[in-house]
Amino acid sequence: MDDFEVSGKSVFVRVDINTPIDPHTGVLLELHRIKEASFTVRHLNGSRIVLGSHQGRVGREDYVSLRQHAKALSEVLGRPVKFVEDVFGEAARTAIKSLKDGDILLLENLRFAAEENFEFTPQEAVKTHLVKNLTPLFDLCVLDAFPTAHRGHPTIVGFPEVLPTCAGYLVAKELKSLNRVVATSKAPYTAVLGGSKVSDRLEAINALIANGRADNVLLTGLIGLVFLRAVGVLKHPLSGDLEKYVPKAAALYHEHRNKFHLPEDVAVEKDGERVEVDVNEVAESDKIYDIGEKTVKKYSKIIKSSGTIFISGPPGAFERKGFEKGTDELLLATASSLGTSIVSGGHLSAALERLGVKDWIDHVSTAGGALVMFLAGQRLPLIEALARSAKRYRAGLT
């Protein structure tokens, strides 16, 4: 970013301020990613800054407007952050054109625009309505969304094809730190995977095992339930669309059976209280919100004997009172281990802050899937987009 003169320029900054949302109140649970995004914004002095980010996924409770994010970012920065309830339509374009040097504008949730929910090749992304409508309004693009680096969305791979593009400070810092941590990592490698993004976790398991980065795979959260169903421990169908992932989980388990460790017990809610039951005693009506004590002890023992621990996604619904135990205990085990530790995802970053052990972890990232793909040696569209843009910039073609 230091290679560009930004004063007096219109700059699009792709950030990732996708933040955990309280399912009951709809308010932001923490501000970690918003605080991280503020660093690059502070260094774009004298420019007209247009910020773009997604929030949640279609159909989920966290698929909400970014209006409250704008207010939170304004408080973090100590300066006004304008908000427009539009992505690339007339309202958005008018708001961008009306900016003065030093102004900051946050666009509406990028995924409210259909195109940002799909992945494209760079050549296809350039043709999207989003990129075509906004490109004439910008002089520079800054990519500072490492948590979304593994996705080929239009704002990630499209703008860098038609605008001078550079990495933001957060992306540069993340890559520098990760390269250092990876260089010192050692076997045995243990991956602790949880959270609610089952498709991402299946992709992660495949990549980590294929690249020798997972000697032990400890499963929690929804992905743990999918595998318990796949091996026949859970007899009843899973809720929502989870059942469709069972065949793939079964294939992975049978191919790499010796690497997987599944929950032995879980915590369910009964009459508003936490009750622990063995996995083979779970009733179809039970609402599972965490792993149980036996599983915590088994997983903690494996974690503490590992050379490298990678944990991504909370083991349970830690935002529910009484169901934070699995998340807290496994994070504490990771923090107190002698191995190289990497904690991934905004939810776990928030939990580490709450526990006061963030400084005990070798690398903490708000990225989830992108970090997994990086550790597994996979291509990241955002990094490739930056490389192509840099090559054109150096050749004087932009």
Rank of each mutant, 00 (worst) to 15 (best):
G168R: 02
L143Y: 11
L31Y: 08
S312C: 15
A395K: 10
S7V: 04
I303S: 09
M1G: 01
G356Y: 11
H24Y: 12
A95E: 14
Q68E: 09
E116R: 02
A390R: 07
D362P: 03
A250E: 10
L140R: 01
K391G: 05
P315S: 10
G316K: 02
E284T: 05
V13P: 11
L225V: 10
H43K: 08
T220P: 09
H254A: 13
P80R: 11
L375A: 04
K100Q: 02
G368N: 04
H261G: 04
E115G: 00
E243C: 05
R180P: 00
D359S: 11
E319V: 15
V279L: 15
T327Y: 12
G89D: 12
S65E: 15
F138G: 04
Y189W: 07
V87R: 09
A250P: 02
R180N: 12
I288K: 08
H24S: 09
K301V: 00
V6R: 06
G224E: 10
A317F: 13
H256G: 08
T25E: 14
E36A: 10
K9M: 06
I49K: 07
E293R: 05
T366M: 14
P237Q: 13
Y289W: 09
V226W: 02
Y289K: 13
G313H: 15
E384H: 09
G56P: 10
E36N: 01
A95W: 15
L130G: 08
P188C: 11
D101I: 06
H150R: 08
A267V: 00
D62M: 02
F120Q: 01
G59T: 03
V58C: 02
E353N: 12
A70L: 14
V27Q: 13
S74V: 01
P20G: 12
E353A: 00
L252W: 15
K270V: 08
V231I: 13
E30K: 07
G339C: 01
P122F: 05
N280H: 01
A250T: 01
G102I: 05
P154Q: 00
S98A: 03
T148W: 07
D62W: 06
V81F: 12
S7W: 02
T190V: 05
T190S: 08
M1R: 06
V233P: 07
V266D: 03
N280T: 04
K298H: 15
R151D: 08
P164V: 01
T19R: 05
K186S: 13
G272R: 10
H54W: 14
K248Q: 12
P147L: 06
